[in-house]
Design a protein around this nucleic acid. Structure first.
Length: 749
DNA sequence: AAAGCGTTTATTTTT
DNA sequence: TAAACGCTTT
């Protein structure tokens, strides 16, 4: 591999991004600007040209998928590098370090990793422990508050000292208790994995130094999505050598609600005054039209670094802005346009993605796709590791691996049913308390106790049931010391009769197949030593989401949220639901900061497209059980006229088509207003409405429509704030159309 | 344990 | 609208 191989084919800024290696570097990479290419070439440059050992490089990504992709591309460029480089997600890298250094840091290396589900259970428990009524304190909101607090590096004590509202006080109490519970279970949640690494290493400079010396170069992808803890980690690791290279695009920061802090990237230059900033502005993905549209939408944001995206690509087709009557028509229009693409332009379905703000929106599209026999794949919904049978089996392993893990024990203690009910569990808890240990340990201890020595903690029946289970699991724990992971799995399944249990359940056969699939996943860890194998397997199960498994099965159209679409690209993109309240979402309406994130979300969506963009909205739609009618998204209005086409009636009309009348009529009729009082209505009032022009239209009247021509009014009925007219148009054949009066520029004849 | 019933709630979810 | 939850009943 020569200098030339690595640098040729890069444009000047890309090349600079690869070659600037002796100071902190900020790479602002616009969408489609060859970001991954730059990172992989930079690593190859470090290794093959500068002779840095791969062992001394750390490359951090946000998803396992990104890590995998980077590994693949890097191995094509510099095959030997991938063996020794530290390349993974923040979480994966930190777990490795924690396990590696457990002894030095005074940690138990067999910790469990708790996912969102587990966390929620602990929060509920914590709420109970604090003597609070979970009716008044929803576990979910407390959990997210706790997570935000952790991401801001605050301990329970510190957050208690912060003061604040009554609710904050409660949250601090629950946080404290929650943290104790984690500790008791010898478990870390996702935040802890990072926090623990940061805290324990910074309190042990001697150990930290080892890592600081080792990592001569650190690269971070998607830097706009880092939270404070991650930023501090990166700073900590790079403090000695200062060769930190961060890559990202502030305009694509869409995870603030998960504590991602866009200021990390916006203020990078201030934090590292000696850093160099490199802008990657040439786009290789999209047509000029699409790029223009994206740029004109993002330009309205205040809190951003201006960028000048450009491309050598063709101008391409204009963006199609299409208006539908309701969500069903919206779906029909999507299908109409998809069929046009596939039938007339020979576009494979796999080239098409439909993007939406909320998962609920996919329903109408799915139904229509099914009706029309259009194949699709839904990004959400393939949650392998969330299946009950998978969780069951994994919890057996988790408990075997970490006997303090009461949460996992609780899940399996009576699955398959072994008559261990609430009372028996209560007695186990009492017993654990009385001997001063965790429930999990207490259960195991039973095998060396006689009923008479347990201080009447148990009824004879409870004791027998628990002891049986205890010795069964105890033996499995011994086997875990000397068996390969798949063997152990087999023993577990066999010992507890899991298969025959599953087969008594609905869909048992399918679910058993899932278990077998899990076993085949485990097979990858058979080369490890027994204890390493179970640890690595559990780690991968805990840290890898299966959304990764969306895979490249590109036979059907892709249905996906705007958030999930980040990082992907498709020749054709449909964004649906471009309405005030949906995109931008109503929860962001009263906060300019959040509104900017909605705008970024829209920007992310549009920049996914290579060739064509369709932007759809519905005049009314069913949302949360009520029919809502919301104005067109403000984002539509930012698109310059010369790059859009479609069935919209021009921008003025979008603004004036009488939508505000709908709002008003809703409030007057006592319906729940969509925009809650106090939240600003998004649009200035404009009174004019076409509907006024043809007051007194009746069935039987002759009318002319600008597109459909002459027709006869079949019926007319009032709908909220408007009139719905059914008209029979007589073209080649008679066609019935349902039309809203305020839209249709009808002429009475 | 499971089934039935009323109540509550509804944005996004890289690890 | 519809699903998820928690409580009561069988």
């Amino acid at each position: 591999m020569t200098n030339n191989d690595i640098l040729s084919g890069l444009n000047p800024p890309q090349r600079k991004a690869v070659e600037t290696v002796n100071c902190p570097v900020l790479i602002l990479a616009g969408p489609g600007s060859g970001k991954t290419r730059v990172i992989t070439h930079r690593i190859a440059y470090l290794v093959n040209i500068l002779g840095i050992r791969p062992y001394q490089i750390m490359a951090v990504t946000f998803t396992n998928k990104a890590a995998r992709e980077m590994r693949e591309r890097l191995s094509a460029l510099s095959p030997d590098t991938v063996k020794d480089i530290t390349l993974g997600t923040f979480h994966a890298i930190c777990v490795k370090i924690l396990r590696q250094e457990a002894e030095n840091l005074g940690l138990n290396r067999d910790f469990s990793i708790y996912d969102a589900d587990d966390q929620l259970k602990l929060v509920k428990e914590a709420i109970k422990n604090c003597g609070l009524d979970s009716k008044n304190y929803t576990p979910g909101s407390l959990l997210s508050k706790i997570s935000h607090t952790k991401s801001r590096l605050l301990s329970p004590e510190e957050s208690a000292l912060q003061g604040g509202s009554y609710y904050d006080e409660i949250a601090a109490k629950v946080y404290s208790n929650y943290q104790q519970l984690l500790e008791k279970n010898n478990a870390l949640d996702f935040d802890d994995i990072l926090l623990k690494t940061l805290r324990s290493l910074s309190s042990r400079p001697d150990i930290l130094k080892k890592y600081q010396q080792r990592y001569l170069h650190i690269l971070v992808d998607e830097f706009q999505d880092t939270n404070l803890v991650q930023y501090e980690l990166v700073k900590m690791f790079s403090a000695l050598n200062c060769n930190l290279c961060v890559v990202g695009d502030p305009d694509q920061s869409i995870y603030s609600w998960r504590s991602a802090d866009i200021r990390n990237i916006l203020n990078f230059e201030k934090d590292f005054p000696e850093s160099e900033t490199i802008m990657l502005e040439q786009n290789y993905r999209s047509t000029a039209c699409i790029l223009d549209a994206a740029q004109s939408i993002i330009d309205s944001n205040q809190e951003r670094k201006p960028k000048n995206l450009w491309t050598k690509n063709d101008t391409g087709e204009k963006l199609k802005v299409l208006e539908a009557y309701d969500q069903r028509e919206e779906a029909r229009i999507v299908i109409r346009e998809i069929e046009n693409l596939t039938d007339n332009l020979n576009t494979p379905l796999g080239d098409i993605a439909v993007l939406f703000r909320t998962n609920a929106q996919s329903r109408a599209i799915e139904e229509a796709f099914i009706r029309h026999g259009i194949k699709y794949r839904l990004a959400a919904g393939t949650k392998f590791y969330e299946r009950r049978e998978i969780k069951d089996v994994i919890c057996y392993l988790k408990y075997i691996f970490n006997p303090h893990d009461y949460l996992s024990l609780l899940r399996i203690i009576n699955i398959p049913p072994r008559n261990i009910g609430k009372n028996t569990i209560e007695s186990l808890k009492r017993w654990a308390y009385s001997i001063g240990t965790s429930e999990g340990e207490a259960l195991l201890s039973l095998k060396s106790f006689d009923k008479d020595d347990t201080n009447n903690a148990f009824t004879p029946r409870s004791f027998r049931l628990l002891k049986d289970f205890s010795s069964n699991i105890g033996e499995l724990m011994e086997m875990a010391q000397e068996m390969r992971i798949t063997e152990l799995l087999d023993r577990v399944l066999e010992r507890v009769n899991y298969k025959s249990y599953l087969l008594t359940q609905p869909d048992g056969e399918d679910r058993w197949q899932n278990v077998l699939e899990l076993k085949s996943v485990a097979q990858q860890y058979n080369d490890y030593s027994p204890s390493e194998g179970i640890s690595a397997f559990l780690e991968s199960v805990s840290l890898v989401s299966d959304t990764d498994n969306l895979g490249d099965g590109r036979e059907g159209a892709t249905l996906i949220t705007l958030h999930q679409a980040k990082g992907l690209e498709f020749p054709y993109i449909f964004i649906i639901g471009l309405e005030e309240g949906l995109l931008p979402h109503y929860r962001s309406m009263d906060d300019p900061w959040q509104m900017e994130e909605e705008r970024r979300l829209c920007y992310v969506g549009i920049t996914r497209a290579k060739k064509g963009v369709y932007l759809l909205r519905a005049f009314k739609r069913m949302l949360m059980g009520t029919t809502q009618s919301n104005p067109p998204s403000r984002f539509l209005k930012d698109l310059p006229d010369n790059i859009v086409t479609g069935n919209q009636y021009g921008k003025e009309k979008i603004r004036t088509a009488g939508f505000n009348l709908h709002h008003r009529s809703k409030n007057e009729t006592g319906e729940k207003p969509y925009f809650l009082p106090g939240k600003s209505a998004p649009h200035k009032q404009v009174k004019e409405s076409k509907a006024q022009n043809i007051i007194g239209l009746k069935a039987g009247n002759k009318v002319r429509h600008p597109q459909f021509g002459e027709g006869i009014v079949v019926s007319i009925k009032p709908v909220e704030g408007d009139q719905e007219v059914v008209i029979a148009f007589n073209g080649d054949q008679v066609v019935l159309k349902r039309i809203l009066l305020s839209y249709a520029r009808l002429e009475k004849l």
